[in-house]
């Protein structure tokens, strides 16, 4: 079962996660341990990378108009900074005593903290990217909501002109997102829903045209045509709502996996 829900996050963190796990096991198996080498240089490397991440993170916070990102990201940055301090302390303690057990514990704690903090930060960023896709999906939902008040061919042309670029964007972004996910079930749902939306779009437009024509001629069947149009708009709405729901999933349902 994948631990990280996107391929990008997985490719960045999975190798480090495995190495940290191995370090913990080695530490537990060799309880007394050999003398630790001088870790000043690699710890300095981490501290410098953390400083850069904090700088980039703060710039991201300041330039973002996503209130949730602005609220959540500082905590993740603090976590990474704190973990880097633990590593620096561990390095200092090991320099004084290469066999120090508290220093080794601090080293493991710091490494885990870096991993967890970076993971939180990437998750914050990823969720913000997902919210951008969701806001595009909601724009399409807003258009679908007005399908029932379109009662002239002129309005229908306008409707199609407005809806098409939005739908193309949603299609492109949701398709890109599904390719990014590590969870196959979520990928499959997004692919299926997107295909449904694509299939239903021309059918909905056709049903709207039929309704407008019947309405204009004052003929029979107007009510049925309206109901058919509403049914199709509702089906598209349901599919888009399912896309929105699945886009927000980051944890794995064990039963679903079984």
């Amino acid at each position: 079962m994948p631990v990280f829900h996107t391929k990008t996050i997985e490719s960045i963190l999975e190798p480090v996660a495995q190495q940290v796990s191995r370090l913990v096991i080695l530490h537990e198996e060799a309880e007394d341990g050999n003398a630790m080498p001088d870790l000043e240089k690699p710890v300095f490397g981490v501290s410098r990378a953390v400083q850069n991440l904090v700088k980039v993170g703060r710039e991201t916070i300041q330039s973002s108009d996503d209130a949730i990102l602005r609220q959540d990201m500082p905590a993740a940055l603090q976590r990474v900074e704190q973990a880097a301090r633990h590593l620096e302390e561990a390095s200092g303690m090991l320099k004084a005593d290469p066999f120090s057990q508290p220093a080794r514990k601090k080293l493991i704690e710091g490494s885990r903290g870096i991993l967890q903090g970076t993971s939180s930060l990437l998750l914050c960023f990823d969720e913000s990217e997902v919210r951008k896709i969701i806001s595009e999906c909601k724009r399409v939902l807003d258009y679908l909501a007005v399908a029932e008040v379109v009662d002239s061919l002129e309005d229908l042309v306008r409707f199609v002109k407005d809806l098409s670029p939005c739908l193309s964007k949603v299609s492109r972004e949701v398709d890109g997102r599904q390719k990014e996910l590590t969870h196959q079930v979520h990928r499959d749902i997004l692919i299926r829903c997107l295909e449904e939306v694509k299939t239903l779009t021309p059918i909905l437009i056709c049903s709207m045209k039929i309704y407008i024509q019947i309405h204009a001629q004052g003929g029979k069947g107007g009510e049925e045509a309206g109901m058919n149009r509403d049914y199709l708009a509702q089906r598209m709405t349901d599919e888009l709502n399912e896309i929105i729901r699945v886009l927000q999933l980051t944890t794995y349902d064990e039963d679903e996996w079984d």
């Binding site: 960045i12 190798p15 190495q19 060799a30 630790m36 991440l53 991201t60 870096i114």
Partner: peptide, 29 residues
């Protein structure tokens, strides 16, 4: 994008640190 690059750098630096710290322990196990 810059966040991802910065996170990659942290991962690489942490990886180097953990490898260095593991090396001494591995000799014992």
């Amino acid at each position: 994008e810059m966040i991802l690059e910065a996170a990659k750098s942290i991962a690489a630096a942490t990886s180097a640190l953990v490898k260095a710290a593991s090396a001494a322990q591995r000799e014992l196990v």
